[in-house]
C-alpha cells in the first residue's frame, strides 16, 4: 500500500520519458510492414507482409544471424568461465592491489568501444591472428566478462564465507564444495549475467567492426543495408527480430535477479 500519490507533472514527465524511449521502436515495427521500399515515408502508403517472406528467403540474413548467435553463445561461455573465476578470486581474498585489479576488470566496459577495438586490432596484428570468428569472439568476450563478473561478484559477496568453510568442515573437498554449495548459490546470478552478456554481444557493432574479417554479424549487416536503398523494409524485419531476441533474455534476467532480492 502506497499512501503518497505521484503528482500530475511527475506523471506527465514519466509518460513523456517513456514515449521518448519507445515511440522510435514503434516506427521500426511500422516500417517493417510498409509497401514503400526506397525511403521511409510517413504515413506508409500501404501495409504488407511480403517483406517477411523476402527476408526469410535471403541467405545473407541467415548467415548473419547464424554468425551472431554463434559469436554470442561462445563469447558468453568464455565470459561465464573467466568472469566467475575473477569474481571468486576478488570477492574472497584481501590482497594488495585488489581494488586496482577490480577496476581493471570493469574498465573494458567503461572504455569507448572504439578504443577497445583499436587496441584489439593492434594486438591481433602483433600476434598475427587472422581476422574471423575467433577474433570477433575474443573482442566480445572483453565486455561480456565484465557483465558476468559484476553479477557474480555481487552474489559472491553475499555468500557467507563460513558456508564454504562449513562445507569443507563437513568433509567436502574443493570440487564438491563448488558443485553443491557455491554453484547453487550463484547459479541465478550467472544465468542473469550470461543473458545480459548474450544480449550485449548480439547487437554489438563497434568492436565487431574492428575485429571481424569478411564476415558480417547481424548488426554489421544491418548497418551495411542502411546505406543501400534496396528493400529497406527487410532491414526493419530483421530489426524486429533483433529486438525480440535481445529483449527476452534481458527481461528474463530482470525477473531472475528480482526474485532473488524478494526472497531475502
Amino acid at each position: 500500500m502506497r499512501s503518497d500519490r505521484a503528482s500530475r507533472p511527475l506523471k506527465l514527465a514519466a509518460l513523456g520519458g517513456l514515449l521518448f524511449l519507445h515511440v522510435p521502436l514503434l516506427f521500426v515495427f511500422l516500417y517493417a510492414f510498409t509497401t514503400e521500399e526506397k525511403s521511409y515515408q510517413f504515413p506508409p502508403p500501404g501495409l504488407t507482409l511480403k517483406w517477411f517472406g523476402v527476408a526469410f528467403a535471403r541467405q545473407d540474413i541467415w548467415d548473419a544471424i547464424g554468425l551472431s548467435l554463434k559469436v554470442a553463445a561462445l563469447a558468453t561461455s568464455v565470459a561465464l568461465v573467466l568472469g566467475t573465476l575473477i569474481a571468486a578470486a576478488l570477492a574472497r581474498r584481501q590482497f594488495f592491489g585488489r581494488e586496482a585489479v577490480s577496476l581493471l576488470v570493469i574498465l573494458p566496459i567503461a572504455l569507448p568501444g572504439i578504443v577497445t577495438g583499436i587496441a584489439l586490432r593492434a594486438a591481433f596484428n602483433l600476434l598475427e591472428i587472422d581476422y574471423g570468428l575467433l577474433t570477433i569472439i575474443l573482442g566480445h568476450a572483453t565486455f561480456c566478462i565484465v557483465v558476468v563478473y559484476n553479477n557474480a561478484v555481487a552474489r559472491f559477496r553475499r555468500l557467507s564465507g563460513s558456508l564454504v568453510e562449513a562445507s569443507m568442515d563437513l568433509g567436502a573437498d574443493g570440487f564438491q564444495t563448488f558443485r553443491y554449495v557455491i554453484l547453487p548459490n550463484i547459479a541465478t546470478a550467472l544465468l542473469a549475467g550470461g543473458m545480459l552478456a548474450f544480449a550485449l554481444s548480439f547487437d554489438e557493432v563497434i568492436v565487431t567492426t574492428f575485429t571481424a574479417g569478411q564476415q558480417s554479424t547481424l548488426p554489421i549487416w544491418m548497418l551495411s543495408e542502411l546505406v543501400r536503398p534496396r528493400q529497406r523494409p527487410v532491414t526493419n524485419v530483421v530489426a524486429v527480430f533483433v529486438i525480440l531476441v535481445t529483449f527476452l533474455p534481458i527481461l528474463a534476467a530482470y525477473y531472475l535477479t528480482r526474485d532473488e532480492s524478494q526472497h531475502k
Binding site: S160, E165, D169
Partner: peptide, 20 residues
C-alpha cells in the same frame, strides 16, 4: 591435513546453514 580430512566438526557462530 585439510579440514575435510579431520575427525572434527564445527558449529559456526553464524550457523552457516546452506540456504538452498
Amino acid at each position: 591435513v585439510p579440514p575435510y580430512a579431520r575427525a572434527v566438526n564445527t558449529v559456526f557462530q553464524d550457523y552457516a546453514l546452506f540456504p538452498h
